[in-house]
Simulated scan of single mutants.
Amino acid sequence: MPLSGSFFSKTFVFGFDARTSRGPMRDKRSWFIRIFDTRNPDVVGVGECGPLPGLSIDDMPHFETVLADVLERVEGQEMPQDAEAWVRQLVPPGFPSITFGLETAMLDLVNGGRRVLFDNDFVRGVPIPINGLVWMNDVESMLNQANQLVNRGFTCIKIKVGGCDFDEECRMLEAFRKVHDRNRITLRLDANGAFAPNEALAKLKRLSAFGVHSIEQPIKAGLPEMADICSASPIPIALDEELIGKEQSKDALLDAIKPAFIVLKPTLHGGILHCREWISKAEKRGIGWWITSALESGIGLNAISQFVSAFRSTIPQGLGTGSIYTNNISSPLKVVNGCLMNDPQGTWELL
């Protein structure tokens, strides 16, 4: 079954003022891999490579050249028995988004090129609970966003902190909690490394008054203080950026820092196979986890959602990014009452 592959790129346009810890974003580019058997070219597997500007280790000028080289190696090969292990051999280290794109394209091809990668409950329409994401803005706008998300049926809200005056952020969280009880609405925070190490514990103590489930990355990744902060924090710490580029040192990182949670993004953290290893190693140590999309289009979001559904986790996942673009790829994915769902009768835009 000789394989052949190609790729194309598409730039997606945000439908709102998207502010991130790395500055404002107006658009986001992704590359899409198409894999097919030359004897049956109408059946095509599609995967998305979407490195995040300023964050992904493979956000580099020669990204497209590396992607073309990888697909050149695919040319003429037979269908592998183990697609994920095969991809690991083809993609050079340091390119997690290409790993994820090729893994998911192959899984799609193996299952008939129908955007079905794993035959599980999500594919059949069973919803996945997700957190509602509050995008960075002034505190009044963020509070309004949070309230609107609760009104839309979300029971877990994630709010970015560290981008505004800290006292104002605390007043915002206090106002939110006056309306939304901690026993009914779960509150997650994400600092994106905004706190100085010598101020982090004091700020975490203040934030703990608001019934916070967890906080992601209170200080920048790679700082030696992270382990002590995880140990002493009154709020459980979740690692995110800390995991980038650490696919070969999972055990050492988890044993040294001992976080309460890890937050996995397949595009950033090594693709499907490495995320499965992160989960296995975390669970052996009693460390919790959830998975988050990284501004992928519907193609990447669908793959991540099917992957996480295989674990039957009940904790809300970070998969609420399907409606952020004005020109997203049409898909059967939809958000209903704080859950992401796949409509089994829906159709995908042809790529």
Rank of each mutant, 00 (worst) to 15 (best):
A310H: 03
K284H: 12
L254V: 07
I272V: 14
L273K: 04
A303F: 01
K250L: 15
V212I: 13
E225K: 10
P266T: 03
K284L: 13
K258H: 11
E216F: 04
G271W: 02
A303N: 02
I299S: 00
K258F: 00
A221F: 06
L239H: 06
W290Y: 14
S233P: 13
P224R: 11
T314A: 13
S313V: 12
H269Q: 14
K250D: 05
Q217N: 05
G298E: 04
T267I: 11
S231T: 04
I215Y: 01
L223S: 01
P316R: 05
A303T: 06
K258P: 00
S249M: 10
F307A: 00
P259R: 10
L207E: 02
L319D: 01
S214G: 03
L207N: 05
K205Q: 14
L268A: 09
S309M: 05
V212H: 02
A221G: 13
S249I: 09
V263E: 04
E277A: 14
T292P: 01
K281M: 13
I272T: 06
L253C: 05
F261I: 01
I237V: 14
E296R: 01
Q248P: 02
E277P: 05
E241K: 07
A260L: 02
P218V: 04
I237D: 07
L207F: 08
L319M: 08
W278I: 00
G211S: 09
S309V: 05
G286Y: 11
S280K: 14
R276G: 12
Q306P: 03
H274M: 14
S280W: 10
E225N: 14
G300P: 03
Q306C: 10
S293Y: 04
W290A: 04
K284D: 14
P236M: 11
S280F: 09
E283D: 14
F311G: 07
A209G: 04
I235C: 07
F311K: 03
V308Y: 04
D255R: 12
A221P: 07
I219F: 10
Q317N: 09
Q306E: 12
G245K: 10
I215L: 09
R276E: 14
L243A: 02
A282I: 04
M226N: 06
A209W: 06
A310L: 09
E247M: 06
W289N: 02
I279T: 09
L204G: 03
L295E: 06
I279S: 07
S305A: 15
S208E: 12
S293G: 15
D251K: 05
F210W: 12
S293E: 15
L254Y: 08
G271D: 02
H269G: 04
A252L: 14
I299W: 00
G245S: 13
K265H: 09
C275E: 05
L295D: 09
I287W: 06
K205P: 00
K265G: 03
